Amino acid sequence: MRAVLTSLCILSALIAPGASLLCQQCTDLQHNNCSTSAPVQCHSSQTHCVSILRQTILSVGGPKMMSIIKSCGTKKDCDLTTSTNAGSFQMITSSKCCNTDNCNPPQINIPLKETNPNGLYCMSCYSGSIDTCDKKENTTCVGGEDRCIQYGVTIKSGGQDMKIAVHGCATRNMCDTQARAAYYGSSFEVKGFQCSSGTRPQLGLFLSALTGLLLMKLFS
């Protein structure tokens, strides 16, 4: 009996390492594809190879810049599309997955940015040099952007850290993933993430008017 148990333990030890998925792990901040010569072995809980394509615009009317992130992940990281609007800064991300060793996910297409206002707004700002920003302005949310978010990110690239800060409108899945849907893997460190519901301007104006009327009545 002891010999049988020993054999089972040895067999389990031999099988376990091979059961982990192998995936590409790379980040390219300037292109829409990247690869490595040797895939990494994923943690046993990571069942999918995840690719996230990100499109950013840093100024109104500016060029669209593409970047790609590939890493090990889970099923909940798959098939996510996010939208972020921080005034001059716009970002859309889309993720796809596959679940075989060193596989390539299906082609990722970035959807067109929705432009119809949804009646909500957030205070927004963007910094491309530090992970905080203070000069905020009202930004109208569009499409499915029903949340106000703020966060800072440290990006590790080529041995040099880059920092950005984003405050603005975003889709709910940016909150659900704590921005993981857009900044995935060891190259990114998200700090100070906060999320709240978008505000309706009409409500703010109504409250301001009501407060004014009450003060006038109080002092008349």
Rank of each mutant, 00 (worst) to 15 (best):
L29M: 12
G204M: 12
F188I: 04
K70N: 08
P105I: 01
T139W: 05
M162V: 03
C122Q: 04
M162P: 00
L80E: 06
F193E: 03
N102Y: 09
A19Y: 12
L215D: 00
C34F: 02
C125Y: 04
H43R: 12
P39Y: 07
K96Q: 14
S45C: 11
L14R: 01
Y126H: 05
H167Y: 08
P17E: 12
I108Y: 02
G185S: 02
A19F: 11
A19Q: 15
G159M: 05
C133F: 07
L210A: 14
T139R: 06
E189S: 13
P201V: 13
C9A: 14
P17V: 12
Q178L: 11
G87P: 03
R172C: 00
K156R: 15
Y121I: 05
H31A: 12
A179F: 05
M65K: 14
S45W: 10
L120I: 06
K156H: 15
P105L: 01
T74W: 00
V190W: 07
A86Q: 03
R54G: 02
I108A: 04
H48S: 09
P39S: 07
Q41H: 06
D176V: 05
A19C: 14
L215P: 01
K113M: 14
L215N: 04
N116S: 09
C175W: 02
V142R: 08
C133D: 08
P117K: 08
R172Y: 04
L5Q: 10
M216W: 14
R200Y: 07
A13E: 09
D28C: 05
L80F: 02
Q25N: 11
G158F: 08
L58Y: 09
A182E: 05
E114P: 14
K113R: 15
A3H: 11
S94H: 15
D176F: 03
V60C: 00
S83A: 10
N118H: 09
P17N: 13
M123L: 13
G212A: 08
H48K: 13
I110L: 12
S71N: 15
S95P: 08
L210H: 02
N173Q: 09
I108H: 04
M1R: 12
D176R: 07
T47H: 03
Y184A: 10
A16T: 09
N85C: 02
L207I: 14
Y151E: 01
M216E: 02
N99Y: 09
S71K: 10
D176M: 07
L112C: 00
M91G: 01
L5G: 00
V166M: 01
G128F: 11
P105T: 04
T139L: 07
Q150D: 15
M216Q: 12
N138S: 14
S186V: 11
L213D: 00
L214Q: 10
L58K: 13
S187H: 15
G198S: 07
F193I: 08
G159Q: 05
T140F: 05
V4H: 01
Q150H: 14
R54Q: 02
N116M: 10
Q202E: 11
L215T: 12
V4W: 06
S7M: 13
T6V: 13
Y151A: 09
K136A: 12
C175T: 05
A19E: 08
A3Y: 05
Q46Y: 08
K64S: 12
I164D: 03
G159E: 06
T177Y: 06
S83Q: 07
H31P: 00
P106N: 04
I68C: 03
P63D: 02
S59E: 13
